[in-house]
Design a protein around this nucleic acid. Structure first.
Length: 812
RNA sequence: GCCCGGGUGGCGAAAUGGUGAGACGCGGGGGACUUAAAAUCCCCUGACCGCGAGGUCAUGUGGGUUCGAUUCCCACCCCGGGUACCA
């Protein structure tokens, strides 16, 4: 035994102190604020900005932001100029509802919440450029949201019409579609009613085909692309016109024109404009009663119950294919919003029509069958064509024709007789942007009795949202802004006569549909976005966010970008080159929510473990794109991992040479981490670094500086503060994020010997070590030298399969 | 109902252009150090059989293809998310 020499004093890893120090330095040195006009390879790394709730930053927010931040930091280490901005989606019903709930004014509450979010975000170690922050409820921002509305208005893409909206009778307010869950108000659970109000719309439907076509060329998560395709909902079919005696023709939309010989009635939505004209005197009372019933019926019984109800109008239409008279009905299973608001009833081949036929004893005719033998087989349920080989039956001269062919042939035949035209229908509706609420950008329109709706001149923007004490919505369906007389009555910009302002505000989703355009130009007050700067930085290089916005925000943003492109304001028409949807963080198998009592406060975790450990742990839970189940216990492992890195760095030696075995592992790790990060395989990247640290610290040997220096760069995207501190300790002068990404030597990844699995009859019985370029004979010989393997080999093998470098399978 | 995901140890999860299942981490067990504890370090840890070498079983269920299937094909069950009378 020798005397233990005095160990060199290693400073303890103190995350709180290190993180505070480096956050301060980043701030002072502007480390995270790139000069947007300079630098090579601009890389716009975007994350979905949060709405500043009263509860503070959620763990899900931090999961999302950390994942995006790691990606951005990695790009920077690769030498790109990375712009990673942040802002606050602070307008909107969510914020306003929260204000109502706690009895505060949103104009006072919002700055407080934003301030709290800023504090929380700054502690998380994100590479955010705070010099370009945007706050959507700030007049300097919403001035341009209003400007955007005016551009769309000029392009004819904004219009006003009466439309049904969701109305909560308890909260006395209009609700957004996304605030209605199963027909109930998300907040108070009251049944939602429909109300007819004058609304502003954007013509998103004009762009349906382009929005659909472009999806093919987007580098987006497949789930998101599929959700958008479904939402746009393209259907090919035809408009078919039915003659009605003594009344206007009725047009229907169908995707199955081939089944027209089986159409035994016609049915209109209750709101259909022709209803009054069609109803006969004898049926007047019955129809009125039905219309009254459907009007007052709540959304639940109409949409969830799905029981078929309806009433006969007394009118008779002519089926243009058969020439037969068929009754005209009214039923609420037909939706006015889709197609023409009228459908032909084909009970044999549509489930809903079949139910309707059963409810009202209407005739059912089979016009499609799997083969001619089934032509008169009775139908116990609707027969929906199952294969391309299904044939038309009972369809005059089309009988025997396969369905795909018949779809076209029947339309062509009807077209000749002027009863049909092929059409494409989309599920995508125009975007209703009016909100009869307070906390949003006032829509910049002035109504004048003489001039009609007049846009507010651009030099008069913003139309400032007035501070009113009573901002609560009421039962009238009119925005609270109408109560502010002084604000409400203004001279017409065209003729000067006193007119009235539009009192609706615009949808919160409009604020977020263009924020990514604002970021680079956030400090400009003269333009919404600088043309040249936009050209340099957009479209967004990588966007990371939650898939809950797959069809709302992401579709609106695409639409706005397309509209601005067409208006000559942008050179590109797709805003996000690459989009990746991250998963959701749950806890104990359930969504985190206050009511379940399973919410985790990120502040406490950062206090206890440090932001670096917390960030790394969140990414280690599971695959980033799948989300993960948050457990409290696992973070200790990540903290130990960082402790070991800290220890290795501080006790490393700078003389002599690095260990070749360790170096080989290091280069494999550089390779692995560099492949995993861009693919968002964060959990496996961390596992690879942990493996390396285990190798690094195996045996009692001194760790060499060359063995830890690249490790510090690898871990930097995940744990930026400790990486900076270690980098500085090892002699780095600039930020580790300006030091570049370590390179690896591919030659070091190839070892001289390989382990080959030896299988007998497909079952692995052992392994042998052979040279990298060993032949089948070499491997065989090596295997037979092992008695435990040799004992399985008796006689001549039937077959031997050799996969070089992997296995040898001897089939006996 | 439809459209996406996904079912692997006590737990979170790795691994597939077909080839050694369970990397990495948590938890658990044992040990070292310590007066003691914490921290740290080392070993073990899918189940079953066996003193051992070793063997058998095992990736939701049932089939199939193959020398070989967690991986590919067919059918089914379960869980999560989205969407819903869209004609």
């Amino acid at each position: 035994m020798t005397d233990t020499p005095a160990l060199p004093e290693i400073p303890a890893y103190d995350p709180a102190a290190i993180e505070a120090t480096w956050q301060q330095r980043w701030h002072e040195q502007g480390t995270n604020s790139p000069e947007l006009w300079q630098g090579s390879e601009p890389y716009y790394q975007l994350m979905m900005f949060p709405y500043p709730s009263g509860e503070g930053l959620h763990i899900g927010n931090l999961f999302a932001f950390t994942g995006a931040d790691i990606h951005g930091r990695f790009q920077r280490l690769q030498g790109r100029t990375v712009f990673e901005p942040i802002g606050f989606d602070s307008f909107g019903i969510q914020t306003e509802n929260y204000a109502i709930k706690v009895g505060a004014h949103p104009a006072k509450l919002t700055p407080r919440n934003v301030e709290r979010f800023r504090g929380q975000l700054k502690r998380a170690g994100l590479m955010l450029d705070w010099s370009k922050e945007v706050v959507t409820s700030d007049p300097s921002y919403y001035k341009w949201t209003q400007w955007l509305f005016l551009q769309l208005f000029r392009q004819g893409l904004a219009y006003k019409k009466a439309a049904a909206v969701n109305w909560c009778p308890n909260d006395k307010t209009v609700l957004a579609n996304e605030q209605v869950k199963d027909g109930h108000c998300e907040r108070c659970n009251a049944l939602v009613e429909q109300r007819l109000l004058e609304q502003w719309f954007f013509r998103t439907s004009n762009f349906a085909q382009r929005l659909l076509d472009n999806i093919a060329s987007l580098d987006w998560s497949e789930v998101t692309r599929q959700a958008q395709r479904n939402w746009i909902g393209r259907s090919e079919g035809a408009h078919v016109t039915f003659r009605v005696a003594n009344a206007h023709d009725v047009a229907v939309f169908t995707t199955r024109p081939d089944t027209i010989f089986g159409a035994t009635w016609l049915v209109l939505a209750p709101e259909h404009p022709l209803v009054q004209q069609l109803v006969t005197p004898a049926q007047h009372a019955a129809v009125s009663a039905y219309l009254e019933r459907t009007k007052t019926q709540d959304v639940v019984s109409r949409k969830v119950n799905k029981e078929k109800t309806g009433v006969f109008t007394g009118a008779v239409a002519i089926n243009p294919a058969t020439g037969q008279p068929i009754p005209v009905w009214i039923a609420d299973y037909v939706l006015m919003e889709y197609g023409t608001g009228a459908v032909m009833g084909v009970p044999g081949h549509d489930e809903r029509d079949f139910e309707f036929a059963q409810a009202f004893a209407l005739p059912i005719v089979r016009v499609v069958a799997a083969s001619m033998d089934d032509a008169s087989a009775p139908l116990a349920e609707a027969y929906v064509a199952k294969s391309d080989t299904d044939l038309l039956v009972n369809s005059a001269h089309f009988t025997g024709m396969p369905v795909p062919l018949a779809k076209k042939a029947v339309v062509a035949w009807l077209e000749e007789r002027q009863s049909a035209t092929p059409v494409v229908n989309y599920r995508l509706n125009d975007w209703c942007i009016s909100r009869q609420r307070y906390w949003g950008p006032p829509i910049p329109i002035i109504y004048c009795d003489a001039c009609g709706p007049v846009p507010v001149p651009e030099d008069q923007l913003p139309v400032v949202l007035p501070l009113i004490e009573n901002f609560r919505p009421d039962d009238s369906g009119i925005s609270p802004l109408a109560r502010h007389d002084e604000w409400y009555r203004v001279p017409c910009p065209t003729c000067g006569v006193i007119g009235r302002r539009e009192t609706d505000v615009s949808d919160n989703f409009l604020d977020s549909a263009w924020y990514f355009l604002r970021y680079p130009s956030a400090d400009r007050s003269d333009v919404p976005f600088d043309r040249a700067l936009t050209q340099r930085w957009l479209p967004v290089t990588t966007y990371i966010g939650g898939n809950e916005h797959a069809v709302l925000h992401l579709l609106y943003a695409r639409f706005i970008t397309m509209a601005l492109h067409d208006g000559g304001f942008l050179d590109f028409e797709e805003p996000f080159t690459r989009f990746r949807a991250h998963g959701m963080i749950i806890r104990e198998g359930a969504k985190m929510s206050k009511s379940k009592g399973n919410v985790v406060n990120p502040d406490d975790l950062i206090d206890r473990w440090g932001a670096d450990s917390f960030r790394t742990y969140l990414m280690f839970l599971g695959p980033y794109e799948d989300g993960g189940d948050y457990r409290d216990s696992g973070i200790t492992g990540v903290r130990r991992f960082l402790d070991r890195i800290w220890g290795s760095v501080h006790e490393c030696v700078r003389t002599g040479a690095a260990d070749p075995t360790v170096l080989r592992k290091l280069h494999a790790t550089i390779n692995k981490v560099g492949e995993d990060i861009p693919a968002l395989g964060y959990n496996t990247a961390i596992a690879a670094m942990m493996e390396y640290v285990n190798v690094l610290r195996a045996n009692e040997r001194a760790v060499h500086r060359d063995e830890v220096l690249p490790l510090v760069q690898l871990v930097a995207p995940f744990a930026p503060h400790i990486a900076e501190a270690c980098w500085e300790f090892l002699g780095g002068h600039e930020s580790v994020f300006d030091s570049g990404w370590p390179t690896y030597d591919p030659a070091l990844l190839i070892s001289d010997t390989v382990t080959i699995a030896i299988q007998i009859n497909g079952k692995t019985r052992g392994t042998v070590q052979v040279a990298r370029d060993a032949t089948q004979a070499d491997v065989s010989a090596a295997a037979l030298r092992d008695p435990n393997l040799a004992r399985f080999v008796v006689g001549e093998p039937k077959k031997v399969i050799h996969v070089p470098g992997r296995l040898l399978n001897i089939v006996m």
